[in-house]
Amino acid sequence: MASADASLLPPEEGRPPLPVAPGLWLFAPSRESQGGSAWLIETAGADLLIDGPAFTRANLQFLAGRPRHRPGGSGGAQAWILLTGRDGHGRCRRLQQALGWPVLVQEQEAYLLPGVDPLHTFASEHQLGPDVRLLWTPGPSPGACVVHVSPLGGAGPDGLFCGRLLVPVAPARVAPLRLRGTFHWGRQLRSVERLRQWLPAGSPDWIASGAGLGALRGPKLVEQGASLIRDLDLEALALQPPGGPMTPKPLS
């Protein structure tokens, strides 16, 4: 780990992440992120930790043991922590201190991460290597974003980590969901429309949500992601009643 300070070690043992596909792991639901889902994926250029898993010994041992983990190396980062929204931050600062991995977050939520160093931000879009792109998708939270991992040379994973922009609602189905904590429902639906235009034709093959996955009834990934996103009825969704009080605020 990046530091030998015993104060950085978590008290809870926990359990290691679950292999879902070659080069893709799912961490156990974390109460530190309201039961959300964090992922690790191997890409051509780096390991990507998507959102913060529970701060446990098992998770830290797994992450610190990654072959690409080179804290303090001079050849550029080979591992990143990418945050798709405030509900997925978990104990990001502790994770970053223990691992030494740089953190990337949309600029509107950087203020929520005091003491995280190195911390990188982006505005509307960001290219993180040849096969990884991020898009700002406000709505679930002010700085919500998605991460698209596309194949290099036509071979490799073609997936979308959607954070809480799309939430499992039934087996093999995800959709925007108007929750009590939704930041701005109208912006969320417009973000889905923008996502449709931003994604390449026929992409993604699969979707990995950052929300709880219980509604999927077993599977962890939602297949046929491109058609699912294309077929969402945003006009009907606009009439969805809120799950509780909402206090939308204008974006800066």
Rank of each mutant, 00 (worst) to 15 (best):
A77I: 04
R68P: 01
G76C: 03
G85F: 05
G75H: 08
L83H: 04
A79R: 13
I81D: 02
G72K: 05
L82S: 03
H89F: 07
F62C: 08
R86W: 04
G72I: 10
L63A: 04
Q78V: 09
A79C: 11
A64L: 14
D87V: 07
P67G: 12
L82K: 05
H89S: 00
P67E: 14
R68E: 04
H89N: 01
H89K: 00
L60P: 03
R68S: 12
G73D: 12
L83N: 13
T84K: 12
L82W: 09
A58F: 11
A64C: 15
H69C: 07
G65I: 10
H89R: 04
F62T: 11
N59M: 07
L63E: 06
G85Y: 06
P71T: 10
G88T: 09
P67M: 10
R70K: 09
T84G: 12
A77P: 09
G90V: 00
H69I: 00
F62Q: 07
A79T: 08
G65P: 12
G75R: 08
G75S: 04
R70A: 13
S74L: 13
P71F: 11
W80N: 05
F62V: 10
A79W: 03
L82H: 06
S74W: 10
P67L: 09
S74M: 05
Q78H: 08
A77K: 07
A79L: 07
W80Q: 02
R66C: 06
